[in-house]
Design a protein around this nucleic acid. Structure first.
Lengths: 245, 245
DNA sequence: CTGAATGGTCTATTGATCTAGACAACTGAA
DNA sequence: TTCAGTTGTCTAGATCAATAGACCATTCAG
């Protein structure tokens, strides 16, 4: 039998111990390390569980407090503030707005940027264009209860989609924007999932600390006839969102 | 317009710069930073792209060389050794052995450990048992061309599956092991995907460096009648594998 | 009110990480 | 052969990360 939860820490691998402890605490919360009132074990206790100095634990807690996960209260203890991950469903008929229904009181899609640019090779190809073709591109930010939960780049299959960007900005819905150009229905043909570290854009737009993990999905949407419409690359903060298929 | 590829580096966030650069190079390789011969830009060039000292780039390259991703050759340059990620399909009828067909010459499933233990609450519940029930548990290691690509824990719905472990060890196939206890067919009812840092077991079993990222899937398999059979938690190294749905 | 338990602050020391610069060793093309 | 371009090695200093210990401030149960 191993020591309770705790998961010891790795030294000399390029990840600071306080960050490993922070990640460890985050996942220990999910595994139920906090008591009924959401109170964490004391700093001294955590330090011995992770096999590090108390000051290192404090650094980890500070980082998590800044993220809004924990709140420390002198004399009382450290408490969990935000706990549950949102679950984002992926299926043939996924719509962002419907995705978080019942999990968040409010959801929104904001338009960050748009334009017409040379699409990356894989994207152009998937949409049926020659590599390097200039295609409409839209950047969006998804929020649930005011917290950023996704950052996506959408590429559209040709100039007739030029005005979707404006419509997304107005209505906050991609589905409605596509309806406005005559696409009444669409289905998701395939989705690729990978994971990587947050890049500079993620840290800024999603408010992540660098070193955080993002789930990346690449999806291709077809119209009912099977013609490609839209290719989307979405980035979800792995500490706030998980995907269900 | 931003500087070419490169993706600058974040300071003071608990991840050593050499590790960030190593991760950055790995993803830049996927994005095509190497030339036709698989040759990387020079160390001086990389240093200026990432905005760090040449010695920091060297530390990153050393780490990647140890992983088998790169090989440096004095006087000539640094070359890519391993590049393509494997693509693991997730669908209603996913079978591990078939998953990497066409991508790897050989695939195998090894039995690491097995026994009968108290299943975690969510697992027992999903399989239709009371929390804390003792259920058969099997740990497997999946390999493609001799490289570890997945590490999974399978829980089975009750004692009649006790002998699947032995059969998996003999045949290297979960499908065949289930057939041996009378399950001719099964389908995947749902899959949850999340991402996290590698834990101690991952670093040992999958040969990862701590701080690496793993994709975690939680899948529930039903028999054709809809009765739960098996709950599997699989861990894939995110630098070697991506998932397609 | 008292005292144990808890988080908050400070100082000091050690080792890891990052930068900087100089030069050696090797490769391949001119 | 020569030389520009590359990786390999060494030294030195600056900054960050981690440990250690001491003590303060706050909370809450007895």
């Amino acid at each position: 039998m191993r020591k309770a939860a705790g998961a010891r820490v790795h030294r000399g691998v390029g990840v600071a111990l306080w960050r490993q402890v922070a990640d460890g605490i985050r996942s220990a919360i999910a595994a139920g390390i906090a008591d009924g009132q959401g109170r964490l074990p004391s700093e001294v206790d955590l330090a011995s569980r992770f096999g590090v100095n108390r000051h290192t634990v404090r650094a980890a807690i500070q980082a998590l407090a800044q993220e809004g996960v924990l709140a420390a209260e002198q004399g009382r203890g450290t408490y969990v503030r935000r706990q549950r991950k949102l679950v984002y469903p992926i299926g043939a008929r996924t719509r962002f707005s419907a995705g978080f229904d019942g999990q968040a009181r409010t959801t929104s899609v904001e338009l960050l940027d748009h334009g017409e640019e040379a699409a990356p090779g894989v994207v152009a190809e998937a949409l049926g264009f020659a590599p390097g073709s200039r295609l409409p591109r839209v950047e969006t930010l998804g929020k649930a209860d005011g917290v950023a939960v996704s950052r996506a780049t959408h590429w559209f299959a040709g100039g007739r989609f030029r005005k979707v960007a404006a419509t997304i900005g107005r209505t906050g819905s991609i589905t409605r924007a596509l309806a406005a150009v005559g696409i009444r229905d669409y289905v998701r043909a395939s989705t690729l999932v990978e994971a990587s570290h947050a890049d500079v854009g993620d840290t800024q737009v999603l408010g992540l600390s660098p070193g955080a993990i993002v789930l990346v999905t690449r999806a291709l949407n077809h119209d009912p006839a099977g013609a490609p419409i839209q290719y989307s690359v979405s980035r979800f903060p792995a500490d706030r969102v998980e995907l269900i298929i």
